[in-house]
Nucleic acid binder design. Structure first.
Lengths: 309, 309, 309
DNA sequence: ATAGGTTTTGTCAAGCTTTTGTACAT
DNA sequence: ATGTACAAAAGCTTGACAAAACCTAT
């Protein structure tokens, strides 16, 4: 097994913490006392705690310590080494020699870093990059320039067999979690109501999630039903809410085709849009819905503009 | 998911169940006592029972134990190892006991940490805490439970001389920056239009900023003019946009009183609300506006609900 | 920020600081006592100081010492060798930063679009333009070529009555928000510490914000106190942090004049610079501070360069 | 170069709690 | 088989300490 130990599987990502101080100490060759002192004095490490107060370190804490050791060996005092390590962030210093971390890294650099982090199963770093992206750029931009291109890539890589299913799952899980977090409180307020879902047998809902975020960002109230939702369920929610809009999206055409009859029935009573690569204008026409562009942001613009017009 | 046993398919489980504790113990090299303790303490194993109550383990229990041993060997404590093994196993979701880690982000703990960080002039840590808050809680919650109480405290501490003006300025600057960042893209979309400002001579606009965020979160499009805005300016923007609502907020009453005549003039043509501690119902009535509760979130609720009603 | 690599700009050097005297001594083979003596007598080295006063050398200090050693070996007296080394030093850092690469969007067109968007109260578009600016150009460039000129224009237009106060407030609010967001992580790293504020009764802090960003970009750690900060507050924070530098900036002269006595008191204990249009060399001299050019970027260059001189 | 004072940083101890394997009584 | 008890191991916090490294000043 590799030296990152327990971090290989996707679901574990956010709760990977588990190393206790003694073990970390043995791994990096720094006494527990020193580890605690470093935490207290420089705040380099901020391990999770168990309910009883025991420190639980992640493997990124381990690399952090190693970075510090590297700096110390190079002659820096522990205090300085700590600041340097802190500034390097969760990312590994080994690969980025002396590159100063810019306060405002540029968009494509951040996008690239996100990709590296996610394919490298480094969740902490991925979260950090997403934080920096969102801090520096508007949500639409982050989605359009970083998240969506990455998802696109991911599909490519996967279909070429260039990455493992585990990597794909991991990346998907991290992004999903993050986008969902952004989407809290979707249904509050005054905007028009949209019900948003993938049809039965369509399990890829990340594009839909981006679309939903963009739509929310344009003032809509969104009820997000997610992947694999039967047409009847969509209809039920839409009816209960008296939704102004129903959006159904799929990557492949089949799920939409299969649900076409039921969807047409809904479209007869309510504004409906079809999104995703699986939605052709022809199919939309047959169902009585509006076809949306493949790009989720553009789709949100279109939906939103149509209403204003 | 089923609750009858540890493996995914019930049928197979029962057909395989048969290992008794002594046998399993010898196979995996873990004493029966320990196996029982693990079951009791971590719930890793849930063997079937024979008629007489004896434990009957399946082969998947065996792999489960081996996984645990592997994790322990890699340095994890038995408690953590159990959690990890539970995650991996086929029956993960159903049987996994609550993880033993302290909740990553306890709201009040995070709020306290935010306070410590800001008063200690530690920006990086403050940002980190805010990140964690936003990652775990809805914006409304973060504002209501962490940001606003802190701002309140800040006023208190300052008036009691418990903190320096410098600390107050610093904290204000950090929070302002952060909230503004959250507010990007305020005017996009389809919602009703609100113009939001403090009157001339009112320079505290943080409460207003929270209100604006909450309002945006409820689907409104917001134009934020900020502190110290003359009534004429407010009117100009409101007219240019054909705003549906104008909100004016002040901590003290004077700025509102001073601007009362001009504001009344605007209120004659447009829905207007007065917010902040400086806004009394009496004053609002005189101006022809609606008084809002002091709490920005409640105010946003009210504004938003009134429109829906 | 530039993209020329880690060692090109003078400010960058200071962010690398961290070597303590013992380590430097071992590296170059000169005793700590001698290093201190050279510093005192010839001023060849001007290391940063840690909070407790420890000297923190950069790697360029190391080459400086080596140059001196070379000259001494060639027979010059230490005094002469020091002068020679001093003359050589700065020259080595003379590699000019490269221009921005391959602009994806035309700078002046984007600047114009920004202006249109902001004056038209179109926030979403403004944010998008800023995103594109930041994605294509270095921060310094964006500030110098787009943001600052626009702010300048804004003042002009306003004074000519060509725009309403509302437009001005709106534009200011958007830009403020954006710049604050870029400023995350201001206090990270190991660079020298700067406290940055406008004096009491000065409420325009946008120029200061640009300056602070530029300074941060040159490796300084910045504590931003913002507008309208009493001298006592500035002093308090500077003391708490043992800041290496205090910068006070105002658009008009009065606020600075009013605070002159208190500021002079601070300047007696700490390096201080005065910035903004309100800062005249005469006033600076009276206070015992250094006057900075009006242009925030140039000011940051000066502050940062002076340190290595 | 020396002297005298301060800061930094790794270590250690005391006192207490939690974890966990093992033992024992029912 | 179950539940309780127990003790060793490992942690936690607080506080203190001493060697090393620095600082200033003479």
């Amino acid at each position: 097994m590799d030296d990152t130990g327990p971090s290989a599987s996707p679901g574990r990502a956010s709760s990977e913490a588990g190393l206790r101080i003694g073990q970390l100490s043995r791994r990096v060759g720094v006494s527990p006392d020193v580890l605690r002192a470093w935490e207290r004095r420089y705040g380099v490490l901020r391990p999770q705690r168990s309910r009883s107060g025991q420190r639980l370190y992640t493997s990124s804490d381990e690399t952090r310590v190693r970075q510090m050791l590297g700096h110390i060996e190079r002659g820096y005092s522990p205090a300085v080494a700590a600041r340097l390590a802190a500034r390097e962030g969760p990312a590994s210093a080994a690969t980025a020699p002396a590159a100063d971390v810019a306060p405002t890294a540029d968009l494509s650099a951040l996008a690239a870093e996100l990709r590296t982090a996610l394919l490298g199963l480094d969740e902490a770093r991925a979260e950090d990059v997403i934080d920096r992206l969102l801090a520096s750029y508007a949500l639409d931009t982050v989605l359009r320039e970083a998240i969506l291109p990455f998802l696109h890539d991911l599909g490519d890589l996967w279909s070429r067999g260039a990455i493992t299913v585990g990597q794909e799952h991991f990346a998907t899980a991290v992004i999903t979690g993050r986008l969902h977090a952004l989407a809290r409180g979707w249904d509050a307020g005054v905007g028009p109501r949209a019900v948003v879902a993938c049809p039965s047998h369509e399990r890829h809902d990340l594009g839909l999630l981006c679309f939903a975020l963009a739509l929310r960002n344009r003032g809509w109230r969104v009820w997000y039903l997610g992947a694999d939702t039967p047409a009847a369920a969509i209809d039920g929610v839409a009816t209960q809410l008296e939704a102004d809009l129903v959006v159904v999206s799929a990557v492949r055409a089949e799920p939409l085709v299969d649900a076409a009859t039921d969807l047409a029935e809904i479209a007869g009573r309510r504004r409906m849009c079809l999104g995703g690569r699986g939605a052709s204008p022809a199919l939309a026409a047959r169902i009585g819905a509006q076809a949306l562009p493949e790009d989720p942001i553009a789709a949100a613009d279109l939906v939103s503009a149509a209403r204003n017009a």
